[in-house]
Design a protein around this nucleic acid. Sequence first.
DNA 1: CTGATCATGTAATTCGTTACATGATTCC
DNA 2: GGAATCATGTAACGAATTACATGATCAG
Lengths: 192, 192
Amino acid sequence: MELSKTAYVILGLLRMGCRTGYEIKSLVDVSTRFFWAASYGQIYPELKRLEQAGLIRAAPEPAEEPDTGRRRKSYELTEEGGDALRAWLTSGTPLHFELRHEGLLRFFLSDAVGVDERVELLRSIRSEHERVLGELRSIRPRAEGDRAQRRLEMPLMTLDLGIAYQRFIIDWCSDAERRLKRTSGAGAGGAA
Amino acid sequence: MELSKTAYVILGLLRMGCRTGYEIKSLVDVSTRFFWAASYGQIYPELKRLEQAGLIRAAPEPAEEPDTGRRRKSYELTEEGGDALRAWLTSGTPLHFELRHEGLLRFFLSDAVGVDERVELLRSIRSEHERVLGELRSIRPRAEGDRAQRRLEMPLMTLDLGIAYQRFIIDWCSDAERRLKRTSGAGAGGAA
DNA sequence: CTGATCATGTAATTCGTTACATGATTCC
DNA sequence: GGAATCATGTAACGAATTACATGATCAG
């Protein structure tokens, strides 16, 4: 593959209406971040590369915004950029998938500690996911708005998967906690 | 935090009975890989560091294995190593969580293509997760064995979460496909 | 004898984060 | 006037992958 995944994030968000690097980063932080993060250190250099490759171009400042001396670079998709985006979206390339979940890692290794510590661990995993669930819920109105006003269906659908996913993990944690307590019975055994 | 997460993977797997870098890598590939991957390029240098830090030490070759000229370095946990592992397992440090899911990213951006392409995308996401589910099922017997013979409960419990999680995503994909088809109704609309 | 597996390591490179540097504008 | 936000970028660093290099042993 030629372009990095982050390049497609930029192409895709430009298509969704973002114009500057700053706007892209702001939107990433309330959307793709949960399954594909990106930092300024990636976005700005990538914008330059994409411009050189002819996939995006500098856009004229929109008229509504009369030149406020504030310097900023607006970009827009070129036709080639749109083509590249759609080509990637429909290509059969293997889908990269990667998870780094410290909570699960600890849980996996937690035979080294006692049941009480295991339960405590499970609680902190659950509370992390509850925090994320809260975040996802808080951004839902925006996704609803995008759907109603800009005919963007997928952001909301993706968000709802995220919400369901968080709930799934949270429920699993509650279940597991109950099972651990039951199994340990009277004598809570430690381990070394 | 002093140690990298990968250092704790090593400490933890050493505790679970691995002895060499090679064994650690082999076990990682059928266990933690799904939520915390590690490569040789990390494992071997990390083993050296951990030895210098006194958390692991070179272990005498077990007697059952009469010196086959095959050179290899066996390690074992020191007391300090075990302490460090348990300290991390029970510490309240924020739990690092990170997901990179190209399928979701594409799905999120797929308003740029037509419903048919969206459905196709959903199918390939589902089939990826079905593949992973198959992998997880294939390693389950090993986890059952570890539980029965070595009193390691957590690997199996973690694996069963993984299996349930894959099923959750697969089901969601099937649902979403049905919903997309229903919504699109008669006139399948494309988008640009 | 040959291919699979056991076994250890390094070097180059890629990917991504974090911190830093800078400065304008807007809202209170 | 000061804090928050808008806005763009770079440099240093760290984490991790990939490819390479090497060689022994074991099963057929």
